[in-house]
């Protein structure tokens, strides 16, 4: 059941991105920025939470989920440390993803070289 829900929620979020790409000529970078920011806002307003409860990885793996984690982290930071938590919380909540991307990015760059497209 988890898998069906994750598939549908995750797939649906990607379809929204695809429609934006095909119809609006927005560059992928702009779409990603909008998705993350939207994730932060929806997360802060408590609208994304039910989606995460329902779709689980289907809602957390796509980039709005990254925004949701940022917002959730910022709230948690404020709860624990006050105002400074607004600054520490977001990055703390997403530290694993960011650090992994930097670290693995570096490792992969050392190991592999880009290949010619066919």
């Amino acid at each position: 059941m988890d898998y069906i829900r994750a598939f549908i929620v995750g797939g649906f979020i990607c379809v929204i991105g695809q429609i934006l790409m095909d119809k609006t000529k927005l560059t992928p970078a702009r779409i990603l920025v909008s998705f993350v920011t939207l994730g932060v806002i929806l997360g802060a307003l408590g609208i994304y939470e039910p989606l995460v409860k329902y779709g689980k990885a289907g809602a957390t793996v796509p980039l709005p989920g990254f925004g949701y984690s940022l917002a959730k982290g910022a709230f948690k930071g404020v709860d624990e440390y006050g105002l400074i938590g607004a600054f520490t919380g977001g990055v703390t909540g997403t530290a694993a993803g960011i650090a992994a991307a930097v670290f693995f990015g570096y490792i992969m760059a050392i190991i592999f070289s880009p290949k010619m497209k066919k």
């Binding site: 990607c14 991105g17 695809q18 790409m21 992928p28 779409i31 990603l32 796509p62 980039l63």
Partner: peptide, 8 residues
């Protein structure tokens, strides 16, 4: 397309 761009 977006199916590989949008996920983490």
């Amino acid at each position: 397309g977006a199916g590989t761009i949008v996920p983490i």
